[in-house]
Write a protein that binds this DNA or RNA. Structure first.
Lengths: 297, 297
DNA sequence: GATTTAGTTCAGCAATACTGAACAATAATG
DNA sequence: CATTATTGTTCAGTATTGCTGAACTAAATC
């Protein structure tokens, strides 16, 4: 065991420095970034120089008359994003403390949660909490995950990620079944005869699960059309353009339900209520999650 | 969906402010805290007042002539701890970048990992990486967890926590068996006749698992002595003071192994390599983990 | 009541962070 | 190729900030 050397001293960094850095990265030009923060390009230039000096490391390289982030400095931007997200959380928390509880909750939901499972629960929650501004965003899981990480969302009702993540914590809300639906006239076929497929875009969590399950059964995995919108996928199936896999609640609702293959559920996926792992405690978020889980039972 | 109101603006906060806050909380007096930061009490008093002003919230209350943290401000201290830990990480990362790789790795291990399983692996790793200052701390799992969270440790080889945690990420290293050991003269007994017990202190992960497993078998769960040190527990068993449950590698090593009950392994526990969930990537930490897992196979 | 201790407020000063002007380098246009 | 436009940098000036030391206030101890 060696003797313990002096601790590396931490630089003094302010959230202002980090705002300059993030603005420089997120905007096309530094001038635009400076404007977004309400300062002159001169202030931002000097501020970033001071940050580089305090870290003892250059963060940007010249590209013509522009400055672009050195790819090796990505961890510094990640640090800046995290600290600014935590600071924004803190600002909201202190605002809540000051105002004695009046606040806002920003909720993301995938479409099946917003349209099929929880519209009544959300209406009811809103009615029960008039002091709370409830903000809803309906988007695919990947977009909701990004929203959580950038601090734009407080909670997301989404598909459970395939691989465990350390940046997000979640509670199970419900399990739902997805089934195979073919064009109306084909009747029941064996899996080997299913397809081609109309499904979600590449990058979708659910699409990966669908294609894996179909592959396991020896079915085709040819995709001929993509859409984020289940209604669009349904319409294309009705028009005889191909087959799809959808949550049963989405495919069989309304006055023209799709025809399910007799195979049964292809697989089940889990919907979760996710928050950023390092988010501060938020009783309103917890109440909403409890309310949604109660509705799911 | 309501119209989106203006975002709550984040206050400008520096790591200096947060250092003042944490020093005020962690030291008996503000004067002592100020000294630990190399400033006068006046600077710290004004700095904390400015932080309260920027947050719009009092953080401390008067207790006689002292100021103590308002319990409701605990989330602000948690935020400060997180940001300062992340900033210290960043400082080490930038130091590594500047020095072209020469650095330091601070490793925690529980005693069985340091003494029984991985001494050769660690000697070998140190020999293979002379450019790296390897710091070892041997302590119980709870202490190692705290060291991770306060940024004092980069990685910890420890018992897997009973309940999943979001602040720590870990890789499985190995599974080890723990068995029941009685005083030398008692021979094989049924579980109902085991005990009383010499075991780890309250708060120990392993102790909770031991008592739960014994309870499941209908054995006594009476504890008559406690120690963090397996050698001490062994000695007390040899002296006929009671029974213990230990990792077999600890209980049966050396020239006077304890006598195992014929029951077999009471249960298995998992040792993991843990890091803080939001820690920056660290190739040296990953290499050490790979080396330890290879040694465990 | 006198003394000591902990934290606060004040005045002064050095350091910092911003603006606006002038400048340098690069890219686009004629 | 010359001129103009654009992006970012450097400089000087100024307002603001953050620190120290002194004086002060309030609480605790003797």
């Amino acid at each position: 065991m060696t003797s313990q050397p002096a601790e590396v001293s931490s630089p003094e960094i302010s959230t202002r420095h980090l705002e300059y850095l993030v603005a420089a990265v997120r905007h096309e030009t530094w001038a635009e970034g400076a404007a977004s923060l309400g300062v002159t390009p001169s202030a931002m230039s000097q501020g970033i120089a001071e940050l580089e000096r305090r870290l003892g490391l250059p963060l940007f390289e010249r590209r013509g008359r522009r400055r672009v982030l050195d790819a090796r400095a990505a961890p510094v931007v990640e640090y800046a994003d995290r600290v600014l997200a935590a600071t924004a959380d803190l600002a909201r928390w202190t605002e809540r403390r000051r105002s004695g509880g009046v606040g806002r909750l920003r909720v993301g939901l995938i479409d099946v949660a917003a349209v099929d499972y929880f519209p009544a629960a959300i209406r009811s929650f809103r009615a029960d909490h008039p002091e709370l501004e409830l903000h809803l965003r309906v988007a695919p899981t990947s977009s909701l995950l990004e929203g959580l990480n950038t601090g734009e969302l407080d909670v997301a009702i989404m598909v459970e990620p395939v691989t465990p993540r350390t940046d997000v914590a979640y509670d199970l809300v419900m399990t739902e079944e997805l089934a195979v639906y073919g064009p109306p006239e084909v009747g029941d076929l064996a899996p080997q005869e299913w397809g081609p497929w109309l499904t979600f875009p590449a990058g979708s969590h659910t699409r990966r699960m669908i294609l894996r399950s179909l592959g396991d059964l020896g079915a085709s995995t040819e995709v001929v059309a993509e859409s984020h919108q289940p209604d669009v996928l349904r319409s294309m199936v009705e028009l005889g353009m191909g087959w799809t896999v959808l949550p049963t609640v989405q495919a069989e609702s309304g006055d023209r339900p799709l025809t399910r293959q007799g195979y049964g559920a292809l697989f089940k996926r889990r919907l979760v209520a996710a928050r950023r792992a390092d988010a501060l405690d938020d009783p309103d978020r917890d109440r909403l999650i409890a309310s949604i889980r109660a509705a799911a039972d």
